[in-house]
Amino acid sequence: MQGGGAVSFATGFVVTFLAFLGVVAAGLAIARALKSRALARPPAPIPSAAPHPGPRARPLPDAPVERARAAPSSAAGFGKDEPMEAALRSKIRDRYIAARFAGIAKCSGDLRNFERTIKAARLFFEEDRGERALELLALAIEEDPACEPTRLARLELAFLLHDAALFGEGARELRQLNPQSPAWGEVARLGRILAPDVALFGPPQGPSVHEHYGAWPEMPNWLHASWDLTAEVRATDFHRAVMASPPTGVVGAGH
């Protein structure tokens, strides 16, 4: 029994020793890996001879985007973080859209509602904010490249803003996307007026005076302008009704 106890003690000792060696080896491997990762990092861009420890920073209660930003990115060499990087980008884009186009979209996905987007772009254009209208439509096209109404709205806007380069680029993209588009005839007609030298639109057919904005018979109205003055009449009625009320106190009631 004593011999068996010695054997089992020796076996236990060997097992423990091997386990210890394993732990040490694993520790060394982890340390090596950490060291090589640290060495792989680019050096700090700015040398500093600061003799001071500097103010002691504590983590701030950051907003979600900032928290996401603080997470390790794929640039740090972690391949599995690419989805996280994509999620961060998507979040920044959504926050940008919500702030830039408040009341129109709360995130990129909202821009897929093309009727609402085109209407908002038209309102920007009517308020002399053509650049903002074009940006909104560009975002909507990025979100849903196959949506032809949004592309056509941008073409009409480019035509009305006399931006021949943008019109040409948009027309080429539309042609590539949908060569059989029933709207192509109209696009080419507007293209010939705006950029008569561009072969894509066919031979020039003389100058045109038909460059009106809105629901004119000679315009395609891809911006969905109102066909009559109902909205204008309603707006004037509302203005008159409110301004006719006493200047102090609350006016109006629900229906």
Binding site: G103, K119, H224, D228, T230, A231, V233, R234, F238
Partner: peptide, 28 residues
């Protein structure tokens, strides 16, 4: 905020009908 009047009606008067396809009213 800018706004649009989506519908209006006056007692005893027929409400105006927007001729816009899709019923999209323009802004005020």
């Amino acid at each position: 905020a800018g706004f649009e009047i989506v519908e209006s009606e006056q007692a005893g008067r027929k409400p105006p009908q927007a001729a816009s396809p899709g019923g999209i009213a323009s802004p005020s």
